[in-house]
Nucleic acid binder design. Structure first.
Lengths: 155, 155
DNA sequence: TAGTCAAAAGTCAAAGATGGTCAGAGGGTG
DNA sequence: CACCCTCTGACCATCTTTGACTTTTGACTA
């Protein structure tokens, strides 16, 4: 594994998988020690790898007895997944390639898109395919992702 | 071998062949050092020798833990179909919904897209989904259809 | 009860680590 | 000689790592 962030990401996902529960609680300090990095590195990993659109919810508490709780979001209804993704679309003015990818992968994990469809859509929505200005790309992505959600909602 | 680019090309192909995997991951810096050239030389080699038409796919990541991944792919046997569609794209400045539909259906008939994929793409490329001005829609459609062809050109 | 303190976790910006782009110089070949 | 590859380096973009500084919380104390 090339960088420490990836290693920590894998570790946390492993722990999450092994614990049957839908959430795990960690101590930032402990994880930082285990991987010999500064504590804020853990925040970086969480902010970039355990995002809402990827299907994770993170809560935490400071002070004595503090913790970081990472929760895998489980939504049973497809409509709920779509609704939450639409919310995310509205929350993010800048729809980066990364965000688009995260959302598409999420749809795959939820069984709403095939792997091939994800690749296909990701390529069409990439910076490279769209060209234009960043602002225009954000707009197109929003439009097309909304159209996608709409289509998937009455599959 | 007369120039360094050819040497690097051979080297990378050798590594690719020897590793059983279908992809290799390199560090631009390392290769540049090994052949005593500037890093951007590696980009030159990749851009001129490892193109999609030649059956290679290249992905990369910047920053800490960055890499360049070169993947061998098998070209789709229906290159002629794609080429003719690309010609059509270039011949038509105004890519109407109708034209888009025709092209997608053609790809379906050639077995290159599933029915669902056609529906999906048609929806995303529709006037309704795109909004904007007619001129902008033509542009986006061209860009995205070209990206689609490129993607379909290999397995 | 209010104040104090230490123990978490959070934020943010700078520094570090890679890879990408582009335009111009250099060189070989018809 | 002209033209097309190659090669180079300055400058850019992106992702990661680090550390100083901030905020929150709970326990202890006056």
């Amino acid at each position: 594994m090339r960088n420490i962030s990836d290693v920590i990401e894998q570790y946390l996902k492993q722990v999450l998988k092994e614990s049957q529960a839908e959430a795990i609680e960690i101590k930032r300090q402990d994880i930082a020690k285990r991987f010999e990095c500064v504590p804020s590195q853990i925040n970086y990993v969480i902010n970039t790898r355990f995002t809402v659109e990827k299907g994770y919810l993170v809560e935490s508490k400071r002070g004595g007895g503090g913790y970081i709780r990472i929760r895998r979001v489980i939504l049973h209804e497809k409509q709920d997944v779509l609704a939450s993704l639409i919310d995310i679309l509205h929350d993010h003015p800048r729809l980066s390639e990364q965000l688009v990818e995260n959302m598409l992968v999420r749809l795959f994990e939820e069984g709403m898109l095939s792997e091939r469809e994800v690749r296909l859509l990701y390529h069409l929505l990439s910076d490279e395919a769209l060209g234009l200005t960043a602002e225009d790309r954000y707009l197109i992505r929003r439009q097309q992702l909304l159209a996608l959600m709409k289509l998937l909602s009455y599959h």
